[in-house]
Design a protein around this nucleic acid. Structure first.
Lengths: 236, 236
DNA sequence: GCTGCATTGTACGATTTCGTACAATTACCC
DNA sequence: GGGTAATTGTACGAAATCGTACAATGCAGC
């Protein structure tokens, strides 16, 4: 057990064994992650994997004009899973939805590290499963839940990935991610605000009552998160 | 290059190198896959991985009373991906929706084989990505497409996994998988039938015009399948 | 403090899908 | 070959969501 010089704020990195983390550390480069910065271009070679410490990235399908979100990634995970699977690209765009900062590593260095340490590879593969479950739960939510519940779910996922209770996003943007009309989001937010579950200012939503949000999201929220902690806890 | 005694009808197995296939073969056991047979119980240790040669399995979220489908698996893939990721269970049920047959291998034997052959492991990991994309595309379809397009997409996915053009399923069942009302499916099927795209009998849908089906599914169908062939073609 | 633009609020009819109910049909079992 | 259950067809008002348009508001920059 070795004291880190810089504390690691990314939970996926932090859950690695000391050995594996040490193996990555020389290659980790601190990066700031600007709003709307594209981390992975769809169908282009992936240059780096990113481990956010703050901020949130969206995984989107960009066909059909707009973007539709199929996943979110923050300090619990990593951007660039295909690398872990030995693949060099993905059809989905990854960009920063809430700015922040984190670490990045060249795809090649990560590959090499995984080739040297089976336990590192195994650990990252566990996160692949968590990510897969998240996508599946998004499919589930999109089929079953009304706008209000989906919005609640989405706010919770943001809340899990920001520092305080403030989520800096516009209705327009949220609508795009959920694949619904913008006024639909406005109205649903009003309902939540009426229940004192959130407070909304221009371009900013503040979570006031997380528990009630979870009730409102109903079955759409939770499985993913439970699965994540199960997977990441077991193996040290 | 060695002639197989029994030709392998599962595309994932078939795309393995001769070496890797030979490594698995002693452990592969032919199984028939009965209608509604549960291959993986949610949150229970996974005993076997299955490689279907015929038939189709559904991956479902079983909360909320009914089941909702988050993925399908047939002769292009395998059931039991968590094993490939070094995980022993999944929150989703896997059961046969269209009966058939295939091969199975004990989880332990598969693990051992992957430990011995990195190329085997790598190859199966490529399929993990394909499966992830499929889940993401389901999320996309559920958010964006109306019942008709989603039904078209779903019929296409079935069609890809059965032998001829016949898909033996009831409206009730399809409705459950898509997460919509049963009469909604009945009506949508009538529309497709009116366009001569399918023919429907009791418990049986016959695909007549696959191309037009693909048009109707619009953007909801295709990406997954393109990604699959890209991933599985590259590496021999 | 004004101005201009991005954001949010609100309205409206149109459309899709829902929930539910019940009738009609087919397949299967005895 | 008649009865029975599963499946499919159809209808209806209710609800959710859509597409669109436009007004009101707050913020940023000058």
């Amino acid at each position: 057990m070795q004291l880190q010089q810089v504390p690691i704020g990314n939970r996926l990195l932090a859950s690695l064994s000391a050995d594996d983390l040490a193996r990555l550390q020389p290659h980790l480069e601190p990066v700031s992650l600007a709003l709307r910065q594209v981390l992975i271009e769809p169908n282009m070679p992936i240059e780096h994997a990113y481990f956010p410490e703050q901020g949130m990235s969206s995984v989107t399908n960009n066909s059909s004009g707009g973007k539709i979100e199929v996943g979110v990634i923050g300090q619990e995970g990593m951007i660039g899973l295909p690398i872990v699977l030995g693949i060099d690209q993905t059809p989905y765009e990854h960009f920063m939805q809430i700015p922040g900062h984190g670490w990045r590593i060249a795809a090649h260095d990560l590959e090499q590290a995984m080739a040297q340490s089976r336990s590192l590879h195994r650990h990252l593969l566990r996160y692949v499963q968590a990510s897969h479950v998240q996508a599946s739960e998004t499919a589930f939510a999109n089929a079953n839940s009304d706008i209000e519940a989906r919005l609640a779910r989405w706010l919770l996922m943001c809340h899990d990935r920001v520092d305080g209770d403030d989520i800096p996003l516009t209705h327009e943007f949220i609508a795009m991610m959920l694949g619904v009309r913008r006024p639909g989001v406005t109205v649903a937010l009003h309902v939540l605000e009426g229940m004192r579950v959130i407070r909304a200012k221009r371009g900013l939503i503040t979570v006031l009552d997380r528990e009630k949000l979870e009730e409102l999201a109903d079955e759409a929220y939770g499985l993913s998160e439970t699965e994540y902690s199960r997977l990441m806890k077991t193996e040290a």
